[in-house]
């Protein structure tokens, strides 16, 4: 099963684990399975309509999956996915 590295702010939802193994043939499927296994994680990864939040970045190895095949990026046994935050904000006008 692929491994997913969990960033510090989300570890409280994965029983403190910094890395979890989740089944899935694509990055999207693996992340979806992660959210099903740890339901409290879902709202921090996905918007209400089920899209991955813009500041949630998923890397396969050293590559952002946006520059691979996105959610359809294939993953296999031993592959490592990392969820990496970007930090954004700012005052409202």
């Amino acid at each position: 099963m692929p491994k997913i590295k969990i960033p510090t702010p989300l570890r409280q939802y994965t029983a403190g684990n910094s890395e979890v193994e989740v089944g899935g043939a694509t990055a999207g499927e693996t992340l979806g399975n992660l959210a099903s296994e740890y339901p409290d994680l879902r709202q921090h990864l996905y918007t209400g309509d089920g899209k991955l939040r813009s500041f949630v970045n998923v890397y396969k190895g050293d590559e952002d999956i946006r520059y691979l095949d996105g959610a359809d990026t294939e993953v296999s046994e031993g592959d490592e996915l990392s969820i990496i935050p970007s930090i954004a904000g700012g005052r409202c006008k």
Partner: peptide, 9 residues
Amino acid sequence: RFLIEPLKI
């Protein structure tokens, strides 16, 4: 607005 890129994080 501000942004810190994921690789920087």
